[in-house]
Simulated assay, not measured.
Amino acid sequence: MDLLPLGSIVVLRDGYKKLIIIGRKILVGRGEELSDYLGCLYPEGYLGEEYCYVFNNSDIDQIIFRGFEDLEEKAFIKAINDIE
């Protein structure tokens, strides 16, 4: 599964609260682990880093809304896929 665009809204497995994706390919900790996404609560938005969550495609149970995609987004995804 390709990365979802910024602004996508998802529910994680065993979760009930929606998250909005605000970042992708996030280094966690001391840069030792790479996660697919950084999300914050929806509809609240960013309330501070203690309310931000890192997760991967495999953690997503439901895609509620898919964010905006254009040529620039598609080029970004292609560049990431070429690196991996």
Rank of each mutant, 00 (worst) to 15 (best):
I64R: 12
A75E: 15
K18C: 07
L3E: 08
V11C: 03
V54D: 04
E84I: 08
K25F: 04
I26Q: 05
L4W: 00
G31V: 09
L47H: 09
I9A: 00
I77M: 11
G48N: 06
K17V: 05
D14Y: 13
G67W: 02
D2C: 06
Y51T: 06
R30T: 08
Y53G: 04
Y37P: 02
F76R: 06
R30A: 05
R24L: 11
G48M: 05
Y16C: 06
R13L: 15
D36H: 10
C40Y: 01
V54W: 00
S8M: 07
G39H: 00
L12F: 01
G7T: 07
Y53R: 08
G15A: 05
V28W: 07
E49K: 12
L19N: 01
R24T: 14
Y51W: 13
S58G: 14
F76A: 14
G29P: 04
K74Y: 15
F68V: 13
I9Y: 02
V28D: 07
G48W: 01
R24C: 11
G31F: 12
E32V: 03
E32Q: 15
S35K: 11
D61R: 14
C52M: 12
V10S: 04
S58L: 15
L38W: 00
G7I: 09
F65Q: 14
R24W: 03
I64D: 10
C52V: 11
G31L: 06
I80L: 05
L41V: 04
P5C: 10
L4S: 02
V11H: 02
E72Y: 14
I26C: 05
L38I: 12
E69W: 08
R24E: 06
F65P: 05
L71M: 13
E50W: 01
E73F: 11
E84C: 08
S8D: 10
D70C: 13
S35V: 08
S35A: 08
G15K: 03
E32G: 05
N57L: 15
R30P: 02
I22L: 02
D70F: 14
S35D: 06
L4F: 00
Y53K: 06
D36F: 04
I22R: 01
N56T: 09
I77R: 07
C52Q: 15
I77F: 10
V11T: 00
F55M: 12
L6W: 03
L27M: 10
K17G: 02
K25Y: 08
G31N: 04
R24V: 07
C40E: 04
G7R: 01
G31M: 12
E33H: 12
R13S: 15
F55E: 14
L19M: 01
K25I: 14
Y53V: 14
Y46T: 03
M1P: 09
D36G: 11
S58K: 15
D82R: 10
E49A: 15
K18Y: 07
E73M: 15
K18L: 13
A79T: 13
